[in-house]
């Protein structure tokens, strides 16, 4: 198989993972575990598809995906941060809700097709052999995924906001005592996670396969959650993880073309089995997990009376 088409398909498979995992990384660094990524992605995907097919504008579609992600994340934020509900259960509820809600809205969009997101085309550069198509021929969301990851890395390591966010995630009581608005910061982080999951969904329904299919995220939201653990909550490793998983997804799609005679169902298991394997490899180093995991993750914050 040719190198360039392979890299191009890996990029499309990795981008939704990278977008969603970047958002979840920020959410988790603030000490909140949102297991509803899959649900937010699906709602983002159908909102983006509906908006794009109604208006004919890809930009409005992408925006609608992000806004829908924020809206669903708001439900999660209200329940866990204001109503102090259990984060694990609420995240699961968000996923169940997202699957049902997106399927309901999407019922009238099954069978529609859209033009895929337009790709960047810079005269002279995009036509350069090998490098041109890879670096200068992507759609906007691919560049955005790299931009957001860099921005998150910069904010976390180089800014006061990043320090406060990490402080809230490491010890909400200390952060609260220092006068930082714990709940507000966490709302911000949760909504950012929602926006990124919504964008990941928009990428699926506007670029990856420009159509709507029920449950089209097929577990990518959960893989994104695993990627955050894999990355031990660090942006740099997240990039590596997302592209590794993207490559696994594409390898299994192409395996049959290369004459591999394993039934397709077993090939389709690969991303899920790889997720389990990666979790095992990373988590078995308990000390590293303990050192890197935000200490307050999943814990309810009761503001002192």
């Amino acid at each position: 198989m040719d190198f360039v088409p392979f890299v191009l398909t890996v990029i499309t498979a990795s981008t939704p993972l990278l977008l969603a995992a970047t958002g979840e990384l920020v959410t988790e660094r603030s000490g909140v575990l949102n297991l509803g990524v899959e649900g937010m992605m699906l709602v983002g995907a159908i909102a983006a598809f509906a908006a794009a097919s109604a208006t004919g504008s890809a930009i409005l579609g992408v925006l609608a995906g992000a806004i829908a992600g924020i809206a669903t994340a708001t439900i999660f934020g209200f329940l866990t941060l204001t109503m102090l509900a259990n984060q694990v259960a609420t995240g699961l509820a968000l996923t169940i809700f997202g699957i049902g809600f997106s399927a309901l809205i999407g019922a009238s969009f099954v069978g529609f097709a859209l033009d895929p997101l337009p790709k960047l085309n810079i005269a002279g550069l995009s036509g350069v052999p090998v490098l041109g198509a890879i670096f200068f021929g992507q759609d906007a969301l691919v560049y955005l995924s790299f931009g957001m990851l860099s921005a998150v890395a910069w904010v976390l390591t180089r800014t006061r906001l990043g320090l406060i966010l990490k402080a809230v995630g490491e010890s909400h009581d200390s952060a609260h005592a220092l006068g930082h608005p714990v709940i507000l910061i966490r709302y911000g982080a949760v909504l950012f996670g929602g926006a990124m999951s919504g964008l990941a969904g928009a990428y699926l329904s506007l670029a990856y396969t420009p159509l709507w299919a029920e449950n089209m995220s097929a577990g990518r939201g959960w893989i994104a959650l695993a990627l955050v653990v894999f990355a031990t909550w660090r942006p740099g490793r997240l990039l590596f993880g997302a592209y590794m998983f993207g490559a696994i997804t594409i390898l299994q799609l192409h395996a049959q073309g290369w004459g591999v005679v394993i039934p397709s169902q077993f090939m389709s298991m690969l991303p899920y089995l790889a997720t389990v394997l990666v979790l095992v490899l990373i988590s078995s180093d308990r000390i590293r997990i303990r050192l890197n995991a935000p200490q307050c993750i999943g814990k309810v914050f009761h503001p002192a009376q």
């Binding site: 509900a85 049902g100 399927a103 309901l104 999407g106």
Partner: peptide, 26 residues
């Protein structure tokens, strides 16, 4: 009605349940 309505109801029910649950301890 689309079959998906059932899933939607189930999600909403769990949301309300978790929200109301807060009143048990708070």
């Amino acid at each position: 009605l689309p079959a998906a309505v059932t899933g939607l109801f189930q999600g909403i029910l769990l949301f309300f349940l978790l929200g109301c649950d807060a009143l048990t301890h708070n």
